[in-house]
């Protein structure tokens, strides 16, 4: 290698590395800012995170991942995850344009989760609660055998410990790749809720953006109390399916949390900032009965 060649290679290498660096800094830059899907405002990502991923300009609630939800919703460092090692299988050996196995791998990378739900025991303002949080990033939050089993076990754990159960949903519905096995998860989870009912254990659901299909038609809407997060779209059939069936356009607010409230399908609509307080208050009212009034007053005093 001549000196000239050696030198030119050095220059090329340096150029390549600066290219990579500049690309990385570009990525970092784009991570610093997030565009609101609703009002198109460019928002500093840090501010958005501090604001619980709610657009400060238009109040749009961004979809959040399960871990972030746990952080927002539970008292700090109180979440003990259970059944975290459970993994999906591929009983039907399902292949569409991509095999189910490959979809599972991709979803795991995208969401950093083993399947579309995390479950565990945590505290909400000091109240020990069995909590499940679904994550839309894992195959659209779809419900297959793992989701069904983890939700069922969580409900059973809540019943065993006689503590309230809260499930936060975000799901497109049953997972097609497990076909009838997914369908049966609707029955399985609902049967578990029947036992919670009989044991007098409070079961609450928070329907977050989006909640549809088999999740709506099972544990999603079986809450003793159903809370819809502001702006969330919630329904049984998808908007497109309904439009195709009835051959007409649907109003923009169709299947929103507020729409469902109007038609008596949810108990209340909550802003994300109020969610923890509201759930804690509901747990308190259901758990203390006689000295309930006193405790609420105390809580107000603390808040003030």
């Amino acid at each position: 290698m001549s000196l000239r060649d050696w030198f030119s290679q050095r220059v090329k290498k340096n150029l390549d590395s600066t290219k990579v660096e500049s690309r990385m800094s570009c990525d970092d830059l784009s991570k610093l800012w997030t565009k609101c899907y609703n009002c198109n405002a460019s928002l500093p990502s840090k501010d958005l995170e501090k604001n619980l991923f709610i657009c400060p300009k238009c109040d749009y609630h961004f979809r959040i991942d399960a871990r972030t939800r746990v952080e927002q919703f539970l008292d700090e460092n109180t979440f003990d995850e259970i059944n975290s090692g459970m993994l999906p299988s591929d009983p039907l050996e399902f292949i569409d344009t991509v095999s189910y196995k490959v979809r599972q791998k991709k979803a795991k990378v995208q969401s950093s989760l083993n399947d579309a739900v995390i479950t565990g025991i945590g505290q909400i303002k000091g109240y020990k609660t069995a909590v499940a949080v679904m994550d839309f990033a894992y195959m659209g939050g779809s419900m297959g055998s793992v989701v069904g089993e983890k939700i069922t076990r969580l409900i059973e754990e809540g019943v065993r410990r006689h503590i309230p159960i809260v499930v936060i949903t975000s799901s497109g519905g049953a997972r097609m790749q497990e076909s009838a096995l997914s369908l049966m998860q609707m029955a399985k989870t609902s049967c578990a809720i029947a036992r919670a009912n009989e044991a007098g254990v409070l079961y609450m659901t928070v329907l977050a953006e989006p909640t549809f299909g088999g999740v709506t038609a099972s544990y999603g809407t079986l809450g003793d109390i159903i809370i819809a997060e502001q702006g969330a779209r919630i329904g049984f059939a998808g908007r497109r399916v309904i439009e195709q069936t009835i051959r007409q356009k649907l109003p923009a607010n169709f299947q929103t949390a507020e729409y469902l409230l109007k038609y008596g399908q949810v108990d209340l609509v909550s802003h994300r900032k109020d969610l923890k307080n509201t759930v804690a208050k509901l747990i308190r009212i259901h758990s203390c009965k006689n000295n309930c009034k006193i405790e609420i007053q105390e809580e107000v005093a603390v808040n003030d």
């Binding site: 609707m186 029955a187 049967c191 709506t216 038609a217 999603g220 809407t221 079986l222 049984f236 399908q265």
Partner: peptide, 11 residues
């Protein structure tokens, strides 16, 4: 409430 009607039957 199509969803809740079905869900209630399951339960």
């Amino acid at each position: 409430g199509q969803g809740v009607a079905i869900a209630t039957n399951l339960r």
